[in-house]
Amino acid sequence: MVPISADRIEDLPALRGLFDFPVAACGCAIPLTGARHHPAEAVLVAGAAERRRDEFLAGRACARSCLDALGYGDAPVLRGERGMPIWPQGAIGSISHSGTIAMAVVAANVTARSIGIDVEQRRAVTDELQDLLFRTEERERLALLPQDERRAAATLMFSAKEAFYKAQFPIGRAFVDYREVAVETSESGFAVTTCIDIEGLGRSGTRFDGRWFAADGHVVTAIAL
């Protein structure tokens, strides 16, 4: 299930189950009213709109809860290049939020080079967005589906690309357009194939596998590199 509580941070076994190695996974509803926000994180969004501030702080609170579970204490998760989280030495992680929920996952960097997660409302991607997000062959596959199934499938594919982007950026520092990777999905997994060379990840045509689940009107994707 996905997090529903606004007054506490919850453990997320389903998210942990998307990885083959030990991770801490936490989530909460937005806004999170029952947690103390770290001053070093709060200052980063002091001038932001209320919704953006609530999303950012809820995600960071989940991340710090994960870090604490792994023995890192109450370390702040600051903001680096292109907004990517800066993790304490020895840790890797990822944060995501989607309107009303936030979640984070953290692991030791001996288990993988990087990890990425994403959460989206189940049918968030409309037909009008497909040209911006998908390659021709992906759009052709989606066109074969009934509209309701098409939106769910498109959202899953988009979420997989988002999770991959979050995981690849700390490695290659590359801006990868949505149409520069191709995604194929299965019942509980997905494959991302690069369509360009990415430093640190190999030549065009390299494949990376991830997993996903859907619950409570949301889809959650995860990948480790």
Rank of each mutant, 00 (worst) to 15 (best):
P3R: 02
R207S: 13
V125H: 11
A25W: 01
A25I: 04
V176N: 04
A49W: 13
F164M: 05
D7F: 14
A102D: 08
A49I: 13
L144E: 14
T185N: 13
I223R: 00
D7C: 11
A48L: 03
M84K: 13
A167D: 04
G189I: 02
I198G: 00
I95E: 03
D7G: 13
E138R: 01
I115V: 15
H38R: 09
A61M: 05
A75M: 09
R36M: 12
D11H: 13
M157C: 07
A24P: 12
E149L: 08
Q130Y: 15
L132P: 07
P39I: 08
T193R: 15
T206S: 08
T111D: 15
F213D: 05
A215D: 14
A174F: 00
A160S: 09
R173L: 12
Q121W: 10
F175E: 15
D131T: 12
Q147N: 10
R16M: 14
I95D: 04
S204T: 08
R211P: 07
E128L: 12
V77K: 04
P170Q: 03
A46L: 11
L70I: 00
L156Y: 00
T126N: 13
L15M: 03
E55N: 02
K161E: 09
H97G: 02
T155F: 11
A48E: 03
P13S: 05
V77G: 04
S96A: 14
R36I: 12
L44K: 11
T33G: 13
E149T: 02
A75T: 14
L201H: 00
H37R: 10
A224I: 06
K166T: 07
Q130V: 13
F175I: 14
D197H: 09
I117D: 01
M157S: 04
R52K: 09
I86Q: 15
G34V: 06
G210Q: 01
V77D: 03
A153I: 00
A222V: 12
V43A: 11
A75I: 08
